[in-house]
Design a binder for these strands. Sequence first.
DNA 1: GTCCATGTTCTTTA
DNA 2: CTAAAGAACATGGA
Length: 284
Amino acid sequence: MPELPEVQTVVTTLRQFVLNARITSAILLRTDICIPSGIDLPAKLTGRSISAIDRRAKRIVFTLDTGERFYIHLGMTGQLLVVDPQTPVAKHTHLIADCRLRIADSKAGAPGKPYAIAQLRFVDPRRFGGIWWLGESADDPNALGPEPLTLRTAALAKRLARPRRPIKSALLDQSLIAGLGNIYVDEALFAAGLHPLTLACDLSPAQVAKLSRAIKQTLRSAIQAGGSTLRDYVNANGQRGQYQSRHRVYDRANQPCRRCKTPIARIVLGGRSTHFCPQCQNRD
DNA sequence: GTCCATGTTCTTTA
DNA sequence: CTAAAGAACATGGA
């Protein structure tokens, strides 16, 4: 579910509801979903209001009114939903937080009542995702590369100059550039006309420039479409993304290239399915 | 039963 | 040191 466009869409939709909301109670149904272990997350959240919701790479970072922070990573199948408290609790729901919303800030709630209660729920069947408590630590300790949308071409070139590895693998490396995943790497490489096996260090300056533009353009279009829903992904409203219908290579093996009709190829690279057009993405 | 899946991290191997 | 390959995590759909 979650590459940069999907995570950004979740953040945007979350803000509409729970930004500045106060958490009146919280239940952690699976304590091992919260890291580090031993953190009493409900105690940390109860009585706090949510001052900010931001995206860093594929992480959704919450800032509380105390200045403390935590982030949620959706892993492969995570969902972060804002629902009416009456909604039946789905299987694999790990966190439920009651949020008191000011009516002025949202359309939820009955007329005449100053507040409405909504529930923020984290659901993740495969549990590759989780909740990381950061507290007041200024820096989050895990090294993440720069944000793709603001990365300058020159900086990207510098980062790609070293690795003697396929460009596809390099772009999936979150310490090199943070936020791309399997879908958008394949899509960006198509948009840039680059073969996924091309070594990162072999790219010409012109190719890096084209790639830099392709990454940004692909991500922006995907964000505009609300991300891609292959299976589980929905935003905080429970709505699916629309960008999957515009994929040019991802999950399109053997289907005709939308540009040249050549059948899209699928190989396995770094253990991940990799899709490309053998005609449009030549190697040289 | 089999294979595959939008992610990350660790181990082994070269 | 670099990086590739494989496995691991856990669940569910085709």
